[in-house]
C-alpha cells in the first residue's frame, strides 16, 4: 500500500502553481501528480517521497489535504499487462474508483495506481494471483 495525498482545489488561476511551489519549498519530490477536475473544482492526487512532510507543508500553505491508501502495482511493459491486473480485481467484485499510471525513469515498466473500495481485500487477491504490489520505498 502507498499513501497518496489528495488536495481539494478550486479551479482558479495559480492555485496549482502555489501547491507545487509549496511542495518544492519543503523539499518534497513528486513521483506522480494527477488532476481530476469538474467545472468548478478539482482534486489533485499526489504520490511523493515524503507524504507526511508534504501534508504538513501543504496545510501550512492553507490547502486542505487528505491521505488515502492506494495500491501501486508494477505492470509489465507489454500488451495486456494492465488488463491482467484488472481482471483479477474484477473477478473478486472489487470496484476500481479511479486509476492512473506513471513510468519510473530507468525502470523496466509502468507503475499503476488504483483506488479500490476494499483495499486490504484487494491486496490479498493480488498477492494470491501472484501480482506484486509496491511498497512506499519502492516508488
Amino acid at each position: 500500500m502507498v499513501k497518496q495525498l489528495t488536495v481539494f482545489l478550486e479551479n482558479s488561476p495559480g492555485r496549482l502553481a502555489r501547491l507545487t511551489r509549496a511542495l518544492g519549498d519543503a523539499g518534497v519530490n513528486m513521483r506522480a501528480l494527477m488532476v481530476a477536475d469538474t467545472a468548478e473544482f478539482g482534486v489533485v492526487r499526489i504520490i511523493c517521497d515524503r507524504p507526511g512532510v508534504a501534508k504538513s507543508a501543504l496545510e501550512d500553505a492553507g490547502f486542505s489535504v487528505s491521505v488515502t491508501d492506494v495500491i501501486a502495482v508494477a505492470v509489465p511493459d507489454r500488451p495486456g499487462g494492465l488488463a491482467d491486473v484488472l481482471e483479477v480485481l474484477g473477478a473478486e467484485d472489487l470496484n476500481v474508483e479511479y486509476a492512473y499510471c506513471f513510468v519510473e525513469p530507468g525502470g523496466s515498466g509502468a507503475v499503476d495506481v488504483f483506488r479500490v473500495e476494499r483495499v486490504t481485500d484487494a491486496m490479498r487477491v493480488l498477492r494470491e494471483a501472484g501480482i506484486r504490489t509496491l511498497s512506499a520505498d519502492e516508488i
Binding site: Q4, F8, T38, F41, V43, S64, R115
Partner: peptide, 15 residues
C-alpha cells in the same frame, strides 16, 4: 466551504 474533515478523495463524494 468544504469542511476539512471531509474525505474528498473521490469526486463523487464532493458531487
Amino acid at each position: 466551504e468544504v469542511s476539512p474533515d471531509v474525505s474528498f478523495d473521490e469526486i463523487k463524494t464532493l458531487e
